[in-house]
């Protein structure tokens, strides 16, 4: 019988559900008690959704909503004192990583992020984690408990039968005061494309000379019935495409049948995002571009000549 008490938190209730399912399915966790957290500001149905994802105990904290990682960390700190988990599972999102770091620093606990696999053993908590910019996986072990584990979004376990969750209400002695004042928040443009689910992707990199030339890429994508992807510089630096097109370590991970990389050098941080594509095509003017080593079909040539020809050959 496992002695593990697993406390799961993400402000994104879908991701929190993924954490609960991962915890339930983790080898060595049979008989573990799985707890979930609802912080102020969560949607009204958060408790129900967490119960459906398998939470046996739900800890509801009263107070004012505040997304500041320091405030969230302080709230979780109170829950850690009350629940005494053996492991705190967080989502390895940007905020999740900050919360993990603040909690770990404040409590002097072991912490790890970018986790894609979780197992419990007598000699510690074992995880798989992405490393070397996502191109390697390491097996790491945390010998002491409690520990903080940040799980990469997309990692979960099979669906579970809904548990009847017990509810615990927590009132904090005092609301934690944030260090930072948030003066503005604005939504980023885009966000509609779910490129993780695309069957075909045509990705453009810095080989494209100017934003106006995106038209030839869009035409190719249309002819191939593909979505348009891009490398980090095109989204984050140039802003030619919105972040929902961005593929790689810090962008989206895609799993298409066909991936066409055009004017993309093939940096390791990009490759991790496209590694699980079935067939990869690369078009690049530099025969030594690293992308060719990761491609099934390579065309050495100028994209301004090759792309229109491809569009035509596809009937576009």
């Amino acid at each position: 019988m496992s002695e593990e008490r697993i406390l799961c938190y993400s402000e994104d209730i879908d991701l929190a559900g993924d954490l609960l399912r991962l915890a339930r399915a983790a080898p060595g966790a049979t008989g573990a008690k799985i707890h979930a957290v609802v912080l102020p500001g969560a949607p009204a149905d958060a408790g129900d959704r967490l119960a459906r994802a398998g939470a046996e105990a739900i800890h509801v904290v009263a107070g004012a909503a505040n997304a500041d990682p320091h405030v969230v960390a302080e709230m979780l700190r109170s829950l850690i004192a009350a629940v005494k988990p053996t492991v705190l599972l967080l989502a390895s999102t940007k905020r999740g990583r900050e919360v993990a770091g603040r909690l770990a620093g404040g409590l002097d606990l072991p912490a790890i992020t970018g986790v894609t696999g979780l197992r419990f053993a007598a000699n510690g908590i074992e995880v798989d984690r992405e490393t070397l910019s996502g191109n390697a996986v390491s097996v790491e072990r945390i010998p002491t408990r409690p520990a903080i584990v940040g799980v990469l979004p997309g990692t979960t376990g099979p669906a579970v039968a809904a548990a009847s969750a017990e509810r615990h209400d927590h009132a904090l002695p005092a609301a934690p005061t944030p260090f930072c004042e948030r003066t503005e928040v604005r939504a980023k443009p885009g966000g509609a494309l779910e490129i993780e689910k695309s069957d075909r992707v045509v990705t453009i990199g810095r080989g494209l000379k100017k934003k106006e030339d995106l038209g030839i890429i869009e035409a190719l994508a249309k002819a191939a019935r593909a979505d348009v992807g891009c490398t980090r510089p095109l989204a984050a630096e140039a802003g030619w495409l919105t972040d929902d097109h961005w593929i790689g370590l810090t962008g989206h991970r895609v799993h298409p049948k066909l991936y066409v990389a055009v004017g993309v050098s093939g940096a390791v941080q990009h490759l991790v995002g496209m590694r699980s594509s079935k067939i990869v095509v690369a078009v690049n003017s530099d025969p030594n571009a690293p992308i060719f080593a990761q491609a099934d079909y390579g065309i050495v040539g100028d994209l301004y000549q090759i792309v229109p020809a491809l569009t035509k050959a596809l009937g576009g």
């Binding site: 390697a136 996986v137 945390i142 010998p143 990761q294 099934d296």
Partner: peptide, 19 residues
């Protein structure tokens, strides 16, 4: 506090055909 047991690079076989 965290021990790295091993690090591996998953190899994805590709055809690497030049057209």
């Amino acid at each position: 506090a965290v021990l790295i047991d091993r690090t591996a690079v998953p190899e994805v076989p590709r055809k690497r055909t030049t057209v």
